[in-house]
């Protein structure tokens, strides 16, 4: 605190005749911090104070899922070459106990998306996903790949078929090829969520709801009632659920040993 000649603009709570106490206060915290660092150097040999550790890591899947091709710069993308090694690291690191997945994606490369979804689904550590804003197209398999999935009430998921005009690099997109691709996606979603194959296909091929395409735009609560997503909820729900899953995981591990 600097000395102030004009007591009328002195901040409240400070005696204008004795402005020293705040100075002493700052000095104290500085010395306290210094001793902390000194202790650290002496005890741990480290110059940096260890920062807060977290047992839950977070992964955001935003914009387009980018795979084999770099998309033009106007696109905001999540690259699978970033995501995949991160997932491996999360699986290997013993300090990390759970994964929180934040989704707001418009779709993208089917194979890259499926690869990410399969990686998350095959992890031994529990994962919880939250669909925020939108989880469209390939975002749906990624959302259901987590151990438990949440969607916020305002979020939407567009369920529509891989288009006949879908771009298949290197080969003309035959109907057969796309149908097989579609089947892989369908199987993944049906296997990893509570939606029935019949309901899923009904949503996929519904006409009259989307202007450009066939398919359905499913809003938060509907996604839960159809069984695609487990529950409505946001960050605190996901965090609580993840801690619960971690606890269960620890208990079952303890029994096995």
């Amino acid at each position: 605190m600097l000395e102030n000649d004009n007591p009328t603009i002195e901040p409240p709570g400070i005696n204008p005749e004795n402005p020293k106490p705040p100075i002493e206060h700052t000095k104290k915290t500085v010395t306290a911090r210094k001793t902390d660092t000194v202790d650290n150097i002496q005890e741990l040999g480290a110059t940096e104070i260890p920062t807060a550790k977290t047992n839950i890591h977070v992964m955001t899947i935003i914009g387009q899922v980018e795979g084999h091709m770099i998309l033009p710069p106007q696109n905001k993308t999540t690259k699978y070459e970033h995501i995949m090694p991160q997932l491996v690291a999360i699986e290997q690191n013993s300090d990390i106990e759970g994964l929180l997945l934040l989704l707001n994606t418009v779709g993208g490369d089917v194979e890259a998306g499926l690869a990410i979804a399969e990686m998350i689904a095959s992890m031994s550590k529990p994962s919880v996903s939250i669909v925020l804003g939108g989880g469209h197209s390939i975002g749906v398999p990624i959302a259901v790949s987590a151990t438990y999935s949440y969607i916020v009430e305002s979020a939407t998921m567009t369920i529509h078929p891989i288009r006949l005009t879908g771009l298949v690099i290197g080969a003309p997109s035959s109907f057969d090829y796309l149908e097989k691709m579609q089947d892989r996606v369908n199987k993944f979603v049906v296997d990893h969520s509570n939606v029935s194959e019949r309901k899923w296909k009904e949503l996929l091929f519904k006409t009259g709801e989307l202007s450009r395409d066939i398919g359905t735009s499913v809003i938060g609560r509907d996604a839960v009632s159809y069984g695609i997503i487990n529950e409505i909820g946001g960050l605190s729900h996901a965090q609580t659920k993840l801690n619960e899953l971690i606890k269960i995981q620890k208990e079952t591990k303890g029994l096995k040993q």
Partner: peptide, 24 residues
């Protein structure tokens, strides 16, 4: 690569209206 998105292809793959020197 099979592209599956709610955004139209022409929007995603368009190279029009790009700045002369895109950020590096």
């Amino acid at each position: 690569m099979t592209f599956w998105s709610i955004l139209p292809e022409e929007l995603v793959f368009s190279t029009n209206n790009l700045p002369d020197s895109p950020p590096l």
